[in-house]
């Protein structure tokens, strides 16, 4: 299925025809989508559909066997993850990959590794967004609770001043009470100008906050629509929106 939006300067991230997997095991087949500037695109689907593999392929931790990844017009398909960061892409992974032996402040500081100007202002903005991190500046990241760790991961991603953020299951392991706050923060981040690809198990919440959505099933994109339309789509509602 060809991407629907026209080739435009406002597409910040595009995947075309991605096949990817681990060794001989193929996971993704012919995955294509694009992300417009300032959009939130939510990718929903069942467990094992390949959502995390897709995130890793977009970031460069998995090399696709076919297809391309383009960031702000530049083909990055063969580029290392650290190269993609230079093009404004940032990933907050499912496992979070925090530096457990380092403090909250040090983790955040490392977020500015590639963009070292205005560190103090960016840090202030992150502490405003996540006051709990401010309280725990000198605490080791490995000792944070689930919710705090998620905030740190998001905050660290923000310190990179990215143009596009890939969020892989940010609500995983979070106490249910914290979920609404999480999605508010995601909206706030987006309002600041960051384009977001959100991969989520909690399909309803993910579509409510998104502009457009994709359904990923068994490694293939089976539905692509405006988020509101997907929320009303009976098939989607029955399969994925019954619970969360």
């Amino acid at each position: 299925m060809a991407p629907e939006s026209a080739q435009s300067a406002s597409t910040v991230l595009r995947a075309e025809g991605l096949d990817a997997g681990y060794g001989e095991v193929g996971v993704l087949r012919d995955v294509s989508f694009d992300l417009g500037d300032g959009e939130i695109l939510s990718i929903i689907g069942p467990n094992g559909a390949g959502k995390t593999t897709l995130m890793r392929a977009l970031m460069g931790f998995v090399t696709p066997t076919a297809g391309t990844v383009t960031v702000e017009g530049t083909d990055v398909t063969d580029a290392d993850p650290n190269m993609r960061v230079r093009h404004g892409l940032s990933l907050v992974s499912e496992e979070r990959n925090l530096f457990r032996e380092m403090t909250v402040a040090e983790n955040l500081k490392l977020g500015t590794y590639r963009s070292r100007d205005d560190v103090v202002e960016t840090l202030d903005r992150v502490y405003d967004l996540f006051p709990r991190l401010d309280e725990r500046r000198d605490q080791l990241a490995g000792t944070l609770s689930g919710g705090e760790a998620q905030m740190l991961a998001l905050g660290r991603g923000l310190m990179m001043k990215p143009d596009t953020m890939l969020l892989d299951e940010p609500s995983l392991g979070l106490a249910p009470l914290l979920i609404p706050e999480l999605f508010e923060k995601i909206e706030a981040i987006n309002e600041d100008g960051v384009s977001v690809v959100l991969v989520e198990q909690r399909a309803r919440k993910a579509l409510e906050v998104a502009d457009r959505g994709c359904l990923l099933e068994s490694g293939e994109i089976t539905l692509r629509d405006d988020a509101d339309a997907m929320l009303d789509d009976d098939a989607v509602v029955e399969q994925y929106l019954g619970g969360a």
Binding site: P81, N82, R86, S90, S93, N97, L98, R100, E106, Y113
Partner: peptide
């Protein structure tokens, strides 16, 4: 220093470091 912190980061979680743009 950034480089020193990056060294500690790589020893802590290499993928996390690469995600932040650190060149291994």
């Amino acid at each position: 220093t950034y480089v020193g912190l990056a060294m500690r980061a790589v020893s802590d979680d290499r993928q996390g470091a690469e995600m932040l743009g650190i060149d291994y």
